[in-house]
Amino acid sequence: MIAQDVIDQSRSAPSPDSSGRTASTWHSQMPDDKEMLRAAVELTRDIADARAAIYWPDMLGSATLGYAALAGAILLDNPLAALACGLLASLALYRALLFIHELTHIHKDALPGFRFAWNLLVGIPLLIPSFMYEGVHTQHHARTRYGTIDDPEYMPLALMKPWSLPVFALTAILLPPALLVRSAVLVPLGVIVPPVRKLVWERASALSINPQYRRRKPEGAFARMVFWQELGSSVWAIGLVAASFLYGWRPLVIALCVVSLTAFLNQVRTLVAHLWENDGEAMTVTAQYLDSVNVPPPALLSPLWAPVGLRYHALHHLLPSMPYHALGECHRRLTAHLGQDSTYTRASYKGLMPLLTRLTRSTLQAK
């Protein structure tokens, strides 16, 4: 599966036209590094299987810690202790939530029951069921879509105005209350008002950042999965609102604040997941890789702000189906094989702040 991912991408890379010219940006002009693509496939075949013994304890432990810390944030009277619990809950739930990324890539038969358990324990309680990412994120990995207007997860942030960066990050804080309104009000309303249902599905049912993205109507087995996940989310959301009317709003407000911090952390991570320098043209696989970011060791804090393997985001674009627990070993093997002066190492950066600084400078230079 992983080998085929890379091979298919490489075969579909754009070629020069009859005059020998390529498209206008440095991204599309960049030829593929065949040695890197070949090494990525050949050196990692033996570690390409998702290991249940890692996935299950990691997800369950993160969720358990997150909910326990959230209970502390709600129940403790000491403000500092409650604040500390809230911060811990945000980080733990952040890690638990990001398993949604793994669900979009692992084979459906790789981890029996994992998708159901994740939705039951994490996705539905936090009002982000897996359908919001499944069928969307894979479009971001399509060779002909990445970085174009058809990519749901790409905006040329480096080419936009400086004020767009804080606005982009801070709008994430509104996501949890918006999701509550979506599941408690808009989805039930859409059952009796078809235009509302169509609008909610197209515009508010995908974890995308491209404002021009419109989601297509679900079909077949996926549509059935969407129905049950929507039903679970709506019942849960309505129950939360009803309980708040009966017992007070403080627990819900605290929970929304905790999840808002989680959403903000993810939005900051998104800011540095790519360089965001493409202006909309199709890119070669190597160009896509170099427009993406790895933050490998010795960066110490990257597992906190880019957990579940997302510190190796550029490598993930080379090997989309590689399980998160194998990416560190993949990185070590490719670095050792290709060398420190290779194309592969050009996607590695020292940490969050250097990447944010680079992005900010790019926006200051944008016209």
Rank of each mutant, 00 (worst) to 15 (best):
S164M: 03
A184N: 03
L179V: 01
P162C: 14
M160K: 06
V181T: 11
W163R: 05
P166T: 10
L180A: 02
F168R: 07
A169Y: 04
T171C: 14
E153F: 07
W163L: 05
F168G: 04
L159V: 09
A178L: 12
K161S: 13
I192P: 07
L189D: 07
L180Q: 01
R145F: 13
R197C: 12
K161N: 14
A184S: 11
L165R: 12
P152H: 06
A184C: 08
I192H: 15
L157T: 06
V167F: 13
M160S: 08
T171K: 12
V167I: 15
P188A: 13
A169K: 03
D151I: 07
D150E: 14
Y154L: 05
V193L: 12
L179W: 00
P176T: 02
L186H: 02
L179Y: 00
R197W: 14
A172T: 07
P162L: 14
I173L: 11
L186E: 03
V185K: 06
P194V: 08
L159Y: 08
L175C: 02
L175E: 00
L159F: 07
W163A: 02
G147W: 10
P156L: 06
M160T: 07
Y154S: 06
A172D: 10
I149F: 15
P152F: 02
M155Y: 07
D151W: 11
R145N: 14
I149S: 15
T171I: 14
A184T: 01
P152C: 06
P188V: 08
